[in-house]
Amino acid sequence: MHSSPSPRKLVEMYLTAFRAVCLGVDPDRSELEAPFLDNWTAAMRGREVFLVGSVTGHPVLGDRRIQTSTLIHLSPDREWARTLSRWYKLGPAFVPKLPGEYLDDVLPGYLVAVDKGVISLPIHVALKCIARRTQQVFDLAFKAGYDDLIPELSRLARAWPVCQEKSCFK
């Protein structure tokens, strides 16, 4: 079992992921390197939002059902997701089977238990949760006194999620 990173290392990991989102995915390079996540859904345990799905080509986990690291970004076309550790190329999302009385309702991904202590989330709820992540990481860095990281995190927190569509670093 791996140990949790130090608070400083965790903030640096978030900063790396935020930068990757702002720079955008390079489909030519990323498609060759990114694991493929199929039959996925956004999910939550406590306050952490992540993806659950069947992965192919993961460099550490191989090919199996996984829970990703913390979700940072989901592309508007739902073809790419950035987590704390890497990009994922996305296949079709998981759509739960609903009881007969709900068949006429559109509730894909709505609060279905996907693992012990884990529930799926509607995409719009997941996006609202992850939209605040840059500010939360900035607050953590500020309280911890990581003065060297604060200017960049401050720019990101002010620009997010606009910088997801264009670079914040130009």
Rank of each mutant, 00 (worst) to 15 (best):
K97R: 15
K97E: 15
K97P: 07
L98E: 08
P99I: 09
G100R: 15
E101S: 05
E101V: 10
Y102H: 08
L103M: 10
L103Y: 01
D104S: 15
D104Y: 04
D104M: 06
D104H: 01
D105W: 06
D105H: 13
L107E: 00
L107T: 11
L107H: 09
P108K: 01
P108H: 09
Y110E: 07
L111R: 15
V112H: 09
V112L: 03
V114E: 05
D115W: 04
D115E: 11
K116N: 14
K116A: 10
K116L: 07
K116W: 08
V118M: 06
V118K: 04
I119L: 12
I119H: 13
I119Q: 13
S120M: 09
S120T: 02
S120F: 08
S120N: 06
L121E: 05
I123V: 15
I123W: 11
H124D: 15
H124E: 11
V125M: 11
A126Y: 07
L127Q: 13
L127M: 07
L127W: 07
K128E: 14
K128W: 01
C129P: 02
I130Q: 00
I130D: 01
A131W: 01
A131T: 11
A131E: 15
R133D: 06
T134D: 06
T134M: 05
Q136L: 15
Q136N: 12
V137R: 05
F138C: 02
D139N: 09
D139W: 01
L140D: 10
L140Q: 15
L140I: 03
A141S: 04
A141G: 00
F142Y: 12
F142D: 13
A144Q: 10
A144P: 02
A144K: 11
D148I: 02
L149H: 11
P151K: 02
P151C: 12
